[in-house]
Amino acid sequence: VKQAEDEIAAINMAIGAGFAGARAMTGTSGGGFSLMTEAIGSAGMTETPVVIVNSMRGGPSTGLPTKTEQADLFQALGASQGEYPKAILAPKDPVSVFYMIADAFNLAEKYQIPVIFLIDFLLSNGYYGIPVDEIDPSKIKIERGDIIESVNGEGYSRYKITENGVSPRVIPGTKGVYYVAATDEHDENGVLISDIYTDEKKRKMMMDKRMTKMKYIVKEFPLPVVEGDSDPDVTLLGWGSTYGVIREVRELLQNEGIKVNHVHVEYVYPVKNEIADILSKSRKVISIENNYSSQYTKLLRMETGFNVENKIVKYDGEPFTPLYLLEEVKKYL
């Protein structure tokens, strides 16, 4: 663990460590994440694995530094200029945090991408009772991806175009191997193509190569958590830390004889089309988010075309409470 002098130093240290072969992560909240975004883009261009934890709070600027919110989803989607492959994960509770941070590292290394891990003040500072047997380190698998340990005189292309977009990487210091890893656009060998004359064909090839990874990343994502009635009249949709309160409200509604289920998303981006398929089976969908603009439902509509018309949002710095949420849900029933 290294305490850096600021967020810009922290993210660049983490990227450097990832480049050197370490599993590297740094953590911050919304304002610090804003400072990190240019460097996150450099990891996207150099295809360097790194994990960034953003514990969301109320914003913008200093905002509500000791309060909770889920308002940084689109900041995570747009981290840095341009387009590059990334994954965004948002665990639902501390047990999910334990297992999913391992998934974040595995995805980062297998696909050589930045992975953004969205939690919030509620999850970071809350109190939870967790049965000991729910935390089992033996269930965690470490997958480091395609790493070459030696090259037998055949030459090496760091950014070689492959079927899944992932190029074999070497750890710096591997005998007989060297390459340029610049934040400028480059060809398969790392040679810059951005100065004076840009090779349009190679630029397109490299963009396509990087973005191809997204098709394979989303295949690794599990389906969302689905709990409750199999033939619901209403579906409660949430993501991230709202899981516990939505589960409790779902149980209260079921006790009143209402057919309801709960769909909860933790693997947020890229978006699985199957989520829209699951939601389309419900007669009514209500989204529940701790932000002003119902950001996840916007993302869902952008990526799948599925529109959620009924939205419950809360952005006063406080988390949902069961009785408050129950009253809000009943307004749509």
Rank of each mutant, 00 (worst) to 15 (best):
S241Y: 02
P65D: 06
M45D: 00
G190Y: 01
Y111F: 15
A182P: 00
I288V: 15
S287P: 06
G59F: 05
S230L: 14
A71T: 08
E328T: 07
I196S: 11
G126W: 12
P322M: 09
N291L: 10
A181Q: 04
A102D: 04
D103G: 00
D277N: 15
P131V: 06
R210A: 06
P60T: 07
E143F: 01
N310K: 14
R247G: 05
K175W: 07
K141V: 10
V53A: 02
Y332W: 12
Y179Q: 00
G32P: 02
T46M: 15
T212M: 12
I286K: 04
N273W: 12
V170M: 05
Q295M: 14
G30V: 04
K67V: 07
T66F: 11
N273P: 11
I246K: 08
L279Y: 06
T297D: 06
T297H: 07
V95Y: 04
D6V: 14
M25C: 09
G317I: 13
K331A: 09
N164E: 01
Y178T: 10
D93S: 01
R283E: 11
Y156L: 10
A24H: 01
D208N: 12
W239A: 08
L73P: 02
Y197K: 12
Y292C: 06
T183F: 06
V1G: 15
D233I: 00
L326A: 09
V95P: 04
I288E: 01
N12H: 10
L325I: 11
Y178I: 05
T242Y: 04
V166R: 00
